[in-house]
Simulated assay, not measured.
Amino acid sequence: MEVNFYTSQREYLAKREEFQQAIENVLKDGIATLGKEVKDFEKSIEDFTGAKHAIGVASGTDGLILTSDILGYKNGKEIITSPFTFLASTSCIARYGGKPVFVDIDPETFNIDTTKIEEKITKDTVGLLPIHLFCQMANMDDIMDISKKHNLSVLEDAAEAFGMRWKGKGDTYRHAGAIGDIGIFSFFPTKTLGAYGDGGMVITNDDKLAELTKIYRVHGAKAKYHYDYIGYNSRLDTMQAAILLVKMKYINDAIKRREEIANIYKERLKDIEELKLPVIKGDQMPVYYVFNILCEKRDELNAFLKKSGIGTSIYYPMPLHLQNCFSYLGYKKGDFPVAEKVCGEILALPIYPEIKDEEVEYVCEKIREFYKK
């Protein structure tokens, strides 16, 4: 049996008429940058997340770059974040001379260990950049308490966190990205809400930050050809917005289906001693964008699964503090032992709404077969 790590074809075939109609409408009406579909999609994100403002940008990476620039994460200022993440979460800080300051991760959630943040704060610290990874959010109660105590801004990297909500000690669940000063989503095709190409969104409850983001995404112009800032060309494509509007109609069903798949994995793999399964911490609503396991003999298992026709991925094989591009920061092996250990054991299994139960069962059977050898 072949089990793809991800495929967009099944979703397209199931909703082909809707996708084709959405694309045709854009072509028929005349393609425009930041067209009607972009505005409609931004409104749908505001309604879904409860954020006051949603601003479409070209990618999640662009969202991080724009917002880091706006928040002043540059020129030697320090921003505390995690070394266990995708490059964009930290390159956005380094791009304009900001200094990423890493904190190790929680071994069960893979998110930043909030108990270690305050010891890294200095007179040059200006912000916190938590990353909500895989299936759950970082401890936003701790992060917001620390930010208020030390007068720091908070940029939430919610690229993987669409649909996730945090309650913690609060009275209500708040959507990822809408708790700190500003947050971003990625609509990369594999994401919980994925486009058919690149796309991103910035959300905030701050009127000034929203206005600046709208200006920065169109070259820094408040009015056409009148530039207040050195901005960017980063607009969500109208065609991608049209596709995403179709997907938004089914987003709650997609999230529910991901949970069903995750539960199959948990039930079938729970008694394998060589594995550690995801642990959700804090009062929150998780979303299984990725289903990761920690496993003994990870590389051997991965090779066995691939040989068995099963697609997998490793998020992430090397922490950022050991990457060549960040060698100038002076970190060395052993500085963040939890992140380093996780990088050697983590493995992502196939999970997307259109995967079949029998395919998930096959993955579990092959994992059990490997560890019985």
Rank of each mutant, 00 (worst) to 15 (best):
V3F: 11
F5L: 15
R10V: 11
L13Y: 06
Q20A: 07
Q20I: 07
Q20L: 15
K28P: 02
D29C: 06
K36V: 12
I45T: 06
A51K: 04
K52E: 13
V57E: 03
I70D: 07
I70F: 09
I79N: 08
I79P: 02
S91V: 11
C92E: 07
G97S: 05
P100M: 08
E108F: 12
N111L: 05
D113W: 05
K116R: 15
E119M: 10
K120G: 01
T122S: 14
V126D: 00
L129E: 00
A138R: 03
K148E: 13
L152A: 01
S153A: 10
A158D: 05
W166N: 04
D171A: 09
A178M: 02
T192D: 01
G197T: 04
V202L: 12
T213A: 15
K214N: 14
R217L: 09
V218Q: 15
K249W: 00
I251T: 07
D253P: 00
K266W: 00
I272L: 15
I280C: 04
D283L: 02
Y288I: 03
N292Y: 02
L294S: 11
L301V: 11
F304T: 11
L305R: 13
I310G: 13
G311F: 08
G311C: 10
G311N: 08
S313I: 03
H321V: 09
Q323T: 13
S327M: 06
G334P: 07
E340S: 10
G344P: 07
Y352D: 05
E354Y: 14
E361T: 07
